[in-house]
């Protein structure tokens, strides 16, 4: 059966969007036109230049698998850069997250200071950190590890602080009533509650950092990114494709492994 309004009931009139909505839409469109022009966005150029891409593909296929051994070795270095960059940032990220979270720190000035440090570390891209550290320790994987430690401390510290902020207030109150101090509340109410989330975020960051270390390699931090850069400079696109296939494998393996563990953690 269907329900119909009795004819005496006045149906509310459809409402047009408020003028402010039109203004927002107009601004949105104008910004996109400006962006289109500034980026020289041109589908025509892409179509006209298809031969260039075809040549590139023709040169890169079939892949040159003679470099596979070298490629795999370098991929392991890339993995190691991502791994150390993640694990060595744990103590710094944890300390800053504990200071930055409302759940664990009551002094507003300490929260603000920790948040400022995290924002700074987060807003400097890892590639920029890498370029800075290259001047100190020279080209190579070590500069990449240092860059990731700094940038990842910023990102992971913020993610962890947010996870702590969202933790249930109840156990915190209950432990506070026993007379526990701030650090004791963090240790025995907040951290045990959020541990699965923290571990899940850690694995997610490992995944991201392994991919970042690839880009750092392009900037001279060694690993497989460095080999890709070299192949391009030497116009050995067939070698490059081998490296890229290895990268694909690496990324899929790390992604699947971290996804599997995160699922088991329920995070």
């Amino acid at each position: 059966m269907s329900v119909t309004a009795s004819p005496k009931l006045a149906v509310p009139r459809r409402r047009w969007p408020a003028p402010v909505v039109w203004v927002v839409v107009a601004v949105f469109l104008v910004v996109h036109v400006l962006a289109w022009q500034a980026t020289e966005f041109s589908p025509a150029a892409l179509i006209a230049g298809w031969e260039g891409m075809a040549d590139f593909l023709a040169e890169s296929l079939p892949p040159d698998f003679s470099v596979l051994g070298k490629s795999l070795e370098a991929a392991v270095i890339t993995l190691y850069i991502g791994l150390l960059g993640t694990t060595f940032s744990i103590p710094f990220a944890l300390a800053l997250a504990l200071l930055a979270s409302r759940a664990t720190t009551s002094a507003a000035w300490a929260q603000q200071a920790a948040r400022a440090v995290l924002s700074f570390l987060r807003s400097v891209p890892d590639v920029v950190f890498a370029l800075i550290f290259v001047t100190a320790v020279g080209l190579g994987p070590f500069a990449g590890v240092l860059a990731l430690v700094f940038h990842n401390t910023g990102v992971m510290g913020k993610l962890w602080a947010e996870a702590m902020d969202e933790s249930d207030r109840g156990p915190r109150d209950a432990v506070k009533v026993t007379g526990a101090s701030g650090p004791q509340i963090a240790l025995h109410a907040v951290l045990p509650t959020v541990m699965p989330s923290l571990a899940g975020l850690l694995l997610y960051r490992l995944d991201v950092n392994v991919r970042s270390s690839l880009v750092l390699g392009l900037a001279g931090a060694g690993g497989i990114g460095f080999l890709i850069n070299q192949s391009i400079k030497l116009f050995r696109f067939d070698e490059m494709v081998t490296h890229i296939l290895v990268v694909l494998l690496l990324v899929v393996v790390v992604d699947q492994a971290s996804g599997f563990v995160r699922k088991r953690l329920g995070a």
């Binding site: 249930d168 109840g170 156990p171 109150d173 209950a174 025995h188 045990p192 509650t193 541990m195 699965p196």
Partner: peptide
């Protein structure tokens, strides 16, 4: 507390 507030894990 009514909601008990133990650390469940």
């Amino acid at each position: 507390f009514q909601k008990i507030h133990l650390v469940g894990r």
